[in-house]
Design a binder for these strands. Structure first.
Lengths: 346, 346
DNA sequence: CTCCTTCTTGCAATCGTTCGCAGAAGTCTG
DNA sequence: CAGACTTCTGCGAACGATTGCAAGAAGGAG
């Protein structure tokens, strides 16, 4: 009859009986907050009993009583995108230190799944949420805000200034990318962006435009295009489009490493070479970019750190220590590798 | 006063009052199992009330009462290893269909963290476990088995034949890899393996030995070495070692793509070229291997499928439909890319 | 010796469900 | 029309912890 499941078997009551005290006393003895209330002699006895019986608090029972689950929901668009494991890891580690556990939910970028996942998480009684799926205009998030749910956005953010967020500094990264290309001598620079309905898409195209102006280069609308979704395939499609519209372009700046990979394909299909004929720059500097062929020049930021600070912000909020809605922007730097080179001589 | 948390606010009792019935009736009406017990008229009324009040069951309360959390713990050595996101995704998707949720825990491959994570999961009352961290001799797993906990191993497995597992067919993959090299004309083939304390390390070196014998090639012990851990750095170390011991070797078969990447580095450092001078073959065929420089020839298996079948096995076990301990081996195939070529002419 | 603190512990209610048991209708059979 | 049977719903006790309240003991002040 091996079907005991993993539920902890020894209860508070049993420890109490063993130590000859009331369950309430055991509860107090085991909780650091209330430990001071109990006589040091009894405390020792209770602790000994607990250890002997290998007592473990039943989190479920506690949560029911205290109305706090010590659990945080994490909404991720797609775990297959190599950007997210590092972020998740940062979240996980910091929550862990505060005895919180994270419940991760994947949405595949589909809005209907967002609500479904959200309901699921709510049913499980999460105390707060970290959301990496924010749309620029996101009614779902605003509804959560209305309800007074603790929410923090990571990587992407919505227009609502009331929800805290941790994002990467698009302006700095883009400017560095464009400067780098300009210094190499590029002039006809194209942009392959992410969908405008998410903040990263929006912020990065804005940053691209400003950056081009800043270095005094021409902004031709035929050299700017967005993908429908963030994927290698879409990147290839847009890359082809750009190369067709302006065969003279010598560089493509992208909003994302996956899109950049797609552009590699497009360049190759057009019978050209990266970086000899066309330079390509990515964004995010996801793991293994240095291994690609050619190694990808990309805008880098600390992804682990992004997750960690988002989690820390949420914890502060849950502890009631923070009531504002800070918008943290993480520093970005350009990592130059081999996908960028001087333009071919005309 | 925005601190309501995410706990569902409307309770069964409120729905009952609204519908003019007893809470127990609402409970029965909402549970598919017991729905048949309630009169269709009352059923309709209760359902209407529930919908109107947007009732959502409080999973925590239910779990406390039923002693089942509908939660499964997943132990992963390292989420940063690109092999695991796909597996996790497969697990997640199949659990989801059965209304189970997964609690993911990362161990960083450290044994002490395994027990800590396990205690954590147990406190949270998981119904079963999917373990990707198994050591070949794993007392922890055996202890769990003793306790009658439902456990399934994925990717790696321990020696205990009592615990179900889903792994990749090492023999088939290795043989295909060696055949491929032999056909290209290689003779001095080296092996860079994973640690022998995990089953993948053990199984793959055995498979390598058998494969070499099968095609009639010499098995020189100086051309066989294992890493201490599964990482690019360790792969490079072992690669260097192998190249130093036998500078004449023309191919390296590895137990893992990360190790293969390390071998790329070692080959390059030795002033040689892959694949012109040294061919390299990986194992796992993780995402983006086709993007590496050169694109990596690797032994492939369906990682998503691996996670999915492991989850399905656990679910069956939890439903009491399965009492044996099946050991599923997933088919492996060699994906030939550009890291393998004929050996240089002597 | 009484009154008032301070410390320590026990009592019992509560969190939101589920489920065994029992009872109230209603139906059927002979 | 009595008795047996089915169908439906309510009652109340769990599940395992936490916590406000009260009470007993001990000690000090007046």
């Amino acid at each position: 009859m091996p079907t005991s499941g993993l539920m902890p078997r020894v209860t508070l009551r049993e420890v109490a009986d063993h130590a000859g005290v009331h369950p309430a006393t055991v509860s107090r003895a085991l909780n650091p907050e209330t430990q001071a209330m109990v006589n040091s002699e009894t405390l020792a006895r209770v602790l000994a009993s607990a250890r002997e019986l290998k007592y473990q608090t039943n989190t479920i029972a506690r949560s029911l009583r205290t109305q706090r689950s010590l659990t945080v929901g994490v909404l991720i668009p797609d775990i297959m995108n190599p950007l997210f494991p590092s972020i998740v890891r940062g979240i996980e580690d910091t929550l862990d230190k505060a005895d919180y556990t994270s419940l991760i939910a994947y949405t595949d970028g589909r809005a209907d799944r967002v609500t479904a996942r959200l309901d699921r998480l709510r049913q499980r009684g999460v105390d707060g949420l970290i959301v990496a799926t924010a749309q620029l205009r996101d009614p779902t998030l605003e509804a959560l805000l209305e309800e007074g749910v603790a929410v923090v956005q990571v990587n992407r953010r919505s227009t609502s200034r009331l929800i805290p967020s941790v994002t990467a500094d698009a302006a700095g990264g883009m400017l560095a990318a464009i400067r780098h290309l300009a210094e190499l001598g590029h002039e006809r620079i194209a942009y392959a962006g992410a969908p405008l309905r998410v903040s990263t898409g929006r912020a990065r195209i804005d940053a691209f435009r400003r950056g081009m102006r800043a270095v005094g280069l021409e902004l031709a609308s035929e050299r700017i295009e967005q993908t429908e979704s963030v994927s290698v395939g879409e990147g290839a499609r847009v890359g082809r489009e750009l190369l067709e519209r302006d065969p003279q372009l010598t560089a493509i700046v992208t909003a994302n490493d996956l899109i950049a990979l797609g552009c590699y394909d497009a360049v190759r299909e057009a019978g050209r070479d990266c970086p000899a004929d066309v330079s390509v720059i990515g964004f995010n500097d996801m793991p293994f970019t240095d291994r690609f062929d050619p190694p990808l020049t990309s805008v880098h930021f600390d992804q682990y750190e992004m997750g960690a600070t988002a989690a820390a912000m949420l914890l502060r909020r849950l502890a009631g220590e923070e009531s504002g809605a800070p918008r943290v922007e993480l520093e970005t730097t350009l990592v130059v590798r081999a996908s960028t080179a001087p333009p071919p001589r005309a």
